[in-house]
Design a protein around this nucleic acid. Structure first.
Length: 262
DNA sequence: AATGTGCCCAACCGCGGAACC
DNA sequence: CGGTTCCGCGGTTGGGCACAT
């Protein structure tokens, strides 16, 4: 299974390699992955080293099967975040994105099989249009984002919010600020290549489940939150136009989702 | 015991974005 | 400001193990 490409080893890691990598990370810390192979004396590319550390060698990685609680959380988070495995894994202590992804894929495979079997049993109806949910994609913030720099902002945990509710006009930040969501698209949903396009904010079930999820499990305003400020945040009204109004309502928000569907 | 099948999971690959020059 | 490098992510692949035949 061992392979080499231009002198760089590929394939399964040996115990000796693990030891070298672990020692290197312990000595120099995580990051600067391009420096890791020479420092550790490993004949591996930086990507391979990084992956090995993140998915296997890193301390406090929980191995073995997922509990039902974890599985539930994954399902809920996936409904909200889509295939953002790193974000999902961030909410599951001691689990890696790769683990979550593998778990999800295997579950989906099993579901598909069961569905196919059920369909084969009942007989295929055929001709149904497949629904395609367009889910938001998280957006990363650069270091120049005001909220991260602390310039003209009051960003703190009290301002954390999730923009999801049944009523588009009834969304408020924890600080009382008003938030505007995209105007609901008119029904019937548009079609593209025979697929019905559903926007996530049009999907009442999704919004309700998102709201329940937020109400019941996800958000703790003020103290510890499963959401971090870098994942989800509201920029407080900035000094002056164009994004603030007289009442201090929030009408410009940064959120870790590109809800406008890029 | 040998072979086939399915599943799990570690690892690779390609891409996009941020950082740097 | 454009090009290059680096990092991190999601999708995919394939080896290996367990179980069935």
């Amino acid at each position: 299974m061992e392979r080499t490409c231009f002198g760089v080893r590929k394939g399964a890691w040996t115990e000796e390699e693990d030891i070298l990598l672990r020692k290197c990370i312990e000595k120099y810390g995580e990051g600067k992955w391009h420096q890791v192979p020479p420092r550790a004396g490993l004949n591996r590319c930086r990507k391979s080293c990084r992956l090995r550390w993140l998915n296997y060698l890193r301390p406090n990685i929980k191995r073995g099967g997922f509990t039902s609680d974890e599985a539930d959380l994954i399902i809920k988070l996936h409904k909200l975040l889509g295939n953002r495995w790193s974000l999902i894994a961030g909410r599951l202590p001691e689990r890696t994105a790769n683990d979550v992804k593998n778990y999800w894929n295997s579950q989906q495979l099993q579901k598909k099989k069961k569905k196919a079997e059920a369909k084969a049993g009942k007989g295929c109806r055929g001709g149904d249009l497949e629904s395609k949910i367009i889910k938001p994609r998280p957006r990363r913030f650069s270091k120049v984002t005001n909220c991260l720099r602390g310039i003209n902002t009051n960003c703190n945990n009290n301002n954390i919010i999730v923009a999801a509710a049944e009523d588009h006009n009834n969304i408020q930040s924890a600080g009382g600020g008003q938030i505007s969501l995209p105007t609901p698209t008119p029904t019937p949903w548009p079609q593209l290549d025979g697929l019905i396009i559903k926007y996530w904010w049009d999907d009442k079930d999704m919004l309700i489940s998102a709201k329940e999820f937020i109400d019941n499990e996800m958000i703790t305003i003020g103290t510890t939150s499963l959401w971090s400020t870098t994942d989800l945040m509201i920029d407080q009204p900035r000094a002056g136009p164009p994004n603030s109004d007289q009442q201090g309502h929030i009408n410009d928000f940064s959120i870790d989702m590109d809800i406008w569907g890029s």
